[in-house]
Amino acid sequence: VLSQDQQALLNYILEAYNKHRVPPDMAKKLLQEQFSTEENFLLLTEMATSHVQVLVEFTKNIPGFQSLDHEDQIALLKGSAVEAMFLRSAQVFTRKQPQGHTEVLEERIRKSGISEEYITPMFNFYKSIGELQMLQEEHALLTAITILSPDRPYVKDQQAVERLQEPVLEVLRRFCKLQHPQEPQHFARLLGRLTELRTLNHHHAEMLESWRTS
């Protein structure tokens, strides 16, 4: 069972997660017009920028985050932004979309100039997230856990970050037990996705480089 404090933490993070979304106008743009590769690149870049802004808004609502050292806040966001974006995009790809939307989005990403060797692991990740059939609460908590990773480069006060991450991990663990009593491995599987995210993050810099070149 979740304690009152844990339930409050869950509600708070979930509410913040639901509130901060990429503006619908921008999301619509992705589906509507036809673009050249160059315009596609710009649009996806604009989308990524918006994503980061939304992520910062979400993060500052995670209880305790704003009490961290200012430079540590930046180090955490810088270290996790790409992973949080992959998680959010995975959710978009997993959700039931109106007829044809997933195909249009996939086509757009495939025609953005990113080389195939980076695209395949990304779509594999989306698929592996899809298989978990995650609830909105799990997405919100996992995103918060990703952001509050104490081992990011340049974080000075790792213990302060750990103190924020641990209660969120415990809420997720209990939530998984409650929601998936038949799947004792569910929590471990969610944490396993964090490892996959690290790999995607690692490749991201190379991916950007290849994207720029082409």
Partner: peptide, 21 residues
């Protein structure tokens, strides 16, 4: 344009916007 900003700049600006509020 936003597309020319680095990740850290975008984060700093977004956090600063928060402080101005």
């Amino acid at each position: 344009p936003a597309s020319n900003l680095g990740l850290e700049d975008i984060i700093r600006k977004a956090l600063m916007g928060n402080m101005e509020e």
